[in-house]
Design a protein around this nucleic acid. Structure first.
Length: 593
RNA sequence: GGGGUCGUAGUUCAGCCGGUUAGAACGCUGGCCUGUCACGCCAGAGGUCGCGAGUUCGAGUCUCGUCGGCCCCGCCA
């Protein structure tokens, strides 16, 4: 850089610097060459500043500036001056000033970028991922990555202040049953044995509580070998926490304080905890999901009792055979066309509905609907009243087994809100979900499996149901949901080996298997484990929502594609036979390795 | 594993019912231009229509397969 020192960045240089000599370094965003005057928009991480090259100021620099191209890296020494009257650019934070160049150094040239760096350029994501270093130069990406940094800093500040210790746990660990598919790593020095990458630091953090560290956190990388989605990557980041001598209310209060501080510090947004709370069953009945989006209404309403009496066979037989009939009131959606209704029916069917009954409420409160004739005036009135229906509304019904109805209407509720633009921008609606079932019956495996994980404590009052009615046992688990997306979940853990054994048994995990896979935990619990509990947050998802993005890839510096590949580094890659041999791996596929 | 969608110039896209030399905008290259800021004007270059088969006199266009991006279901304690 030839002795030049950067004195300012391209954002914070203001009118106060007028008449000062400054040195800027950055990338050429755009050059506007007038033959005489040349303007260059210089971009660095912080912002953009206009540099002017004039032949009468410095002929050599002006001459050099003709050679500048997009993304050249340059150093500019020059004088800050107020822009001439009428030449200010209100779109730029530095738009009141410009830097008149006295000396230009080209620090590096660049080939033409594979895609434009314009803010609004619409570029395919595959290309962005291949040239991620270019993509990350775009201001929106710099903002996302910076926001993520601020969130992490706020987390650390808050937790440090609350006496937590940041502790790392192993990345090379052991495979455990239950949960997602593991990523495996062969052990060279232990032929035929494998490490697993952690799906979460769950067991280690509990062990740390047994160790008496009392308050632990970690911004931890986690690995799950499952298929990807917009909000799921094979490696992702959790804010993982665990505390001793606490119960649900302690963790919930601490987390509310943490989230409040994170939003205040990273976004300047004031949240007002406590957040709303729903029990699992309440959330399911009212929103059809355990992660309700409360930014809009349209709650599910049960009308099974009325449907039981009505003349519509689909409804009364469902009601008679243990199913449920529920409805949502789509307020003021009476203008939905027949095609819209057909589309919504297809939508409902994709979630398992056999059909989708609808009723349009006309001006005189009369029902316009294929099913209207099966309901007496009295039944129509009762349903309308329960759904608070008014002229211009549309009612949608689901009649089936409970799980299907909840799923279909829950999805329909969100779809209607999306289609009608009922979801307000810039809102952050947090909800706690509590009292989850401890386990649910898994048809495929023919046994109960944990809803959260096998170390979650049952509610004391439900403890005796573990052996008699496992599906009815509620757990001391809690989820934090933001705008309909699960961003965190945790529980009070089992800290007594006797209880842990009973739960393993209910999960049909044999003594042998539990000793084999979790023996160290069971043993640890017998060495004076304090009551403890914790929570883990999907950091990527939290930052994604805070950034207003729809994919966590936008808040991860180097994410993977849906096929779990890194298009930039070309991972995963083939490896040599020699490497495989060293690991005692002998592939028997036909391709050449 | 399954469903959907996309793949044409560096980029974003258009390309009709299968028919002459595959177009536009931006970008790029060269020239002109002293107040632009998506500068402007003039000229020019730039194509393995993802790949491979097939149908056809003829395929960017139709069919099948395949590869890749994205969305979703399954999966994700």
């Amino acid at each position: 850089m030839g002795g030049l020192k950067r004195t300012h960045d391209c954002y914070s240089i203001t009118e106060e610097a007028i008449d000062q000599e400054v040195t800027l370094m950055g990338w050429v965003l755009r050059r506007r060459d007038h033959g005489g005057l040349i303007f260059v928009d210089l971009r660095d991480r912080k912002g953009i500043t206009q540099v002017v090259f004039a032949p009468e100021v410095n002929a050599k620099s002006h001459e050099k500036a003709h050679r500048l191209r997009s993304e050249y890296v340059i150093a500019v020494r020059g004088r800050v001056r107020r822009r001439p009257e009428g030449m200010e650019n209100p779109k730029l934070k530095t738009g009141m000033i410009e830097v008149v160049c006295h000396e230009l150094r080209i620090l590096n040239t660049a080939v033409t970028p594979p895609f434009p760096l314009d803010e609004d350029a619409d570029v395919s994501e595959g290309l962005r991922l291949k040239y991620r270093y270019i993509d990350l130069r775009r201001p929106v990406m710099v903002e996302n990555i910076t926001l993520r940094h601020r969130v992490c800093q706020a987390i650390r500040q808050f937790l440090n202040r609350h006496d937590f210790l940041e502790i790392e746990t192993p990345i090379l660990t052991r495979s455990t049953p239950e949960g997602a598919r593991d990523y495996l790593v062969p052990s060279r020095v232990n032929p035929g044995r494998f490490y697993a990458l952690p799906q979460s630091p769950q067991l280690y953090k509990q062990i740390l509580m047994v160790s008496g560290l009392e308050r632990y956190y970690q911004i931890a990388r986690c690995f799950r070998d499952e298929d990807l989605r917009a909000d799921r990557q094979p490696e992702f980041t959790q804010l993982d926490m665990e505390m001793s001598f606490v119960e649900e209310s302690d963790i919930i209060a601490l987390v509310e304080g943490l989230i409040k501080e994170v939003f205040a510090s990273a976004l300047g947004i004031t949240l007002e905890p406590p957040f709303r709370r729903f029990t699992f069953s309440e959330a399911m009945e009212r929103f059809g999901t355990d992660r309700p989006d409360t930014r809009f209404d349209m709650e599910l309403v049960d009308v099974t009792d009325i449907a039981r009496r009505c003349g519509l066979k689909v409804f009364n037989t469902v009601a008679a055979s243990g199913g449920v009939v529920k409805a949502v009131n789509a307020k003021e959606m009476g203008d939905l066309s027949r095609k819209d209704l057909d589309d919504l029916t297809v939508f409902a069917q994709s979630f398992g509905a056999k059909g989708l009954a609808w009723v349009k409420i006309k001006a005189d409160n009369a029902w316009q609907s294929p099913i209207a004739k099966f309901f007496s005036d009295e039944e129509q009135h009762a349903i309308a009243q329960r759904l608070e229906a008014a002229a211009g509304d549309v009612l949608f019904f689901g009649a089936d087994q409970r799980a299907t109805v909840l799923r279909v209407l829950g999805e329909l509720r969100c779809e209607l809100a999306r289609r009608r633009g009922l979801i307000p921008e810039g809102r952050f609606n947090f909800v706690w979900i509590t009292d989850f079932p401890l386990m649910e019956y898994n048809e495929d495996e023919g046994r109960f499996t944990s809803m959260h994980h096998p170390f979650t404590a049952p509610l004391d009052e439900d403890m005796d149901l573990i052996e008699t009615d496992p599906g009815a046992v509620r757990s001391r688990a809690y989820d934090l949901v933001l705008n309909g997306i699960e961003i965190g979940g945790g529980s009070i853990r089992i800290h007594q080996p006797t209880v842990q054994k009973r739960v393993f048994k209910a999960l049909s995990i044999s003594d042998k298997e539990s000793r084999d896979k979790f023996g160290f935990l069971l043993e640890a619990l017998s060495h004076g484990a304090p009551p403890h509990g914790g929570i883990a947050f999907g950091l990527d998802r939290l930052v994604m929502i805070m950034a207003g993005r729809e994919s966590i890839r936008d808040v991860i510096a180097f994410p993977k594609t849906q096929k779990a590949q890194c298009l930039m580094a070309n991972a995963p890659s083939r490896v040599s036979m020699a490497q495989l041999a060293e690991l005692y791996l002998r592939p028997d596929w036909k391709e050449k390795a």
